[in-house]
Write a protein that binds this DNA or RNA. Sequence first.
DNA 1: GATGAATGAGTATTCATTCAT
DNA 2: GATGAATGAATACTCATTCAT
Lengths: 209, 209, 209, 209
Amino acid sequence: MAAQDTKVQTRAKGQATADRVRAAAMKRFAQAGYAAVSMREIASDVGVRPGALYNHFQTKQDILNDLMLGHMAQLLDAWETADFPDHMDALERFVRFHVRYHLERADEVFISYMELRNLEPDNFETIETERRKYEAILTEILEKGAQDGRYTPEHPKVTTRAIIAMLTGIPAWFRESGPLSKSDIEDHYVNLVQNAVLRAPGQSPRETG
Amino acid sequence: MAAQDTKVQTRAKGQATADRVRAAAMKRFAQAGYAAVSMREIASDVGVRPGALYNHFQTKQDILNDLMLGHMAQLLDAWETADFPDHMDALERFVRFHVRYHLERADEVFISYMELRNLEPDNFETIETERRKYEAILTEILEKGAQDGRYTPEHPKVTTRAIIAMLTGIPAWFRESGPLSKSDIEDHYVNLVQNAVLRAPGQSPRETG
Amino acid sequence: MAAQDTKVQTRAKGQATADRVRAAAMKRFAQAGYAAVSMREIASDVGVRPGALYNHFQTKQDILNDLMLGHMAQLLDAWETADFPDHMDALERFVRFHVRYHLERADEVFISYMELRNLEPDNFETIETERRKYEAILTEILEKGAQDGRYTPEHPKVTTRAIIAMLTGIPAWFRESGPLSKSDIEDHYVNLVQNAVLRAPGQSPRETG
Amino acid sequence: MAAQDTKVQTRAKGQATADRVRAAAMKRFAQAGYAAVSMREIASDVGVRPGALYNHFQTKQDILNDLMLGHMAQLLDAWETADFPDHMDALERFVRFHVRYHLERADEVFISYMELRNLEPDNFETIETERRKYEAILTEILEKGAQDGRYTPEHPKVTTRAIIAMLTGIPAWFRESGPLSKSDIEDHYVNLVQNAVLRAPGQSPRETG
DNA sequence: GATGAATGAGTATTCATTCAT
DNA sequence: GATGAATGAATACTCATTCAT
């Protein structure tokens, strides 16, 4: 039993260290960029010698990959389980979700967009697949809206990218101490996005066609 | 006169090398990121030994700074001298200019947004000042439009950033070989942006106030 | 216990390497001068790759500083614990001690005098303090002798430097294979120094004053 | 005549540059040591590009060699032409000459002692020959004095080195602003040296033999 | 005599990683 | 799981020197 306990304890300790490695790497990668961060710095943040990192991650690349995989999984999961008032339409839901999530996880998001090029090809492919899944959510919303005649029908994939780029740029300049609250930001972006894609009245295909 | 010629020739050769350094660094920085590019690689691209780079730039940082300063100066200058049909309104001009310029200079633009954090504080300040000048152009357009009642009046600075983020993201995914031409892209983004900020008819302050 | 042994062994190995670094650096610095010795050379002498040196010393400067601090500490300690016949007077003790010590540790001594200018300011200050302690020993001997009327009373600090310069120059030319033994040298310098500072008979303050 | 004038002027200009190179190198070598001084630094002091130095000296080593050869030649020449009161004995002359010369040319002297090891073998040999000539002057004085019974007869060559080391160490600590003037220093060292080698009365070979 | 560009070798130091313990 | 020592390759940058002009 003592041995069992020890094992459990050890595993728990290892888990805790791995998590601290992730946290330290996340902060450092977000601030300085993957290439500019050394394993020594991460180890020092964690309070451990560099060699010890290799008990938890096989390479530096694996840390990055782990962070990005985790981020995409959590992002998609968070969307699945997000809760909104019934009356809210899908586009508004998506915008509010995205802004909120990205403002709360600025580091993850930043890395996720900046460090794509530092992923080795295999890892990149996997992440890209996940990213496309996420983008597909918005594209689908836009396409459905176009079919309904509510949204303009042109190039929904391009519009997806335009909207996501617009939203994703927020954490780069947003400061809690600024004049606008997170909720102000959400509202403003909902307006911008809705206006951008809404079909103007009198232009509905039914009427013009 | 012969001596004069010699000097001119020598200096011209140096100028040419410096330009090739700029070009090589631009490509490499855009592809791999500043931190991941070595002076050796740049030198090798240029066809020169690493030490020779230091005849033209004092440090690697200076190369980055030179590229970013040059980009901002050219961007602002290009805006000043851009030529558009008289009937085109300012917002459309800006969007078309930005999309066009950024699609033609994808590398410069990419570096300009990605490598800001790798600028040393002094250099960063200078670049930021230039960037704010550029953003101010769009903010002013939005503010004037709001005064005229054509554009929604809320948070023109935030809207500026939203629009610029949206436009600047284009080169990240655009491919010549894709289904849309550069001109298609321009048209689509003009629509998105105009819709995003246009005040809906029947909502004009004159009529409602 | 096995783990304990391992740690002790590992640490002992590191200690041994550090000592070999010190020994190699000492020889090289003494022969070629600090600035002319490369970390590569030291590493090669030690039988290790250059990077491994940095497990033991943070910088090249730290190696120099370590050597000089060690030398001064050992010098002062050796004086404290030196053993001489009871009848021998303090000046003779000092001269014999200094000559002997410096002939046995020619490299340390040489570095200690030659490389002062290569110490960074903070390190220099610390070493200078130690050096002044050592000089103070001789100055005090001269001052006491002057009070007793045995030694000439003029400028004991200058005389200190004169004597130490004279003695310290020995290793620069002394060769074991030369006509004089170390002990001959000692005797000769004791004579020179004693004569230099002895008050001539008939000049004693008692008699003349 | 114009061409002639030009040549003369050019040669004079070159001579002047060479002299400024010597002066700059002297200061730098004295302060930082030969190995730690770069041709770039010297060139910058002179106000010229590094390549230009090679119009005046074939290598960095040649500058050092030139300085040391010049120093030894001037030292020996200065001794030949030095002027002293008739009544002054040879030993006092030598001490006063040496102290004076070394206090006035601290940089030359310092380099001359510190940078011997940085001379390539051939250059070293030449300089050593000159140095031995200079030391021979003092040795001869001591030997003559020993024959006369005025000086102790032991090991005049060792005594030579002791005295020269003692005297040569002065510029290392002497400061104009200190409590002693150059002339005080001279007097004090004359005393020390004379006492060191004077045969005590009642010990003269005539009387004891 | 001087320049600006270039070389080729070298500098101290840092890197991700390995591994015996 | 963690350590301390080590590796082998890389880093930005500097060096003395050359040379066409």
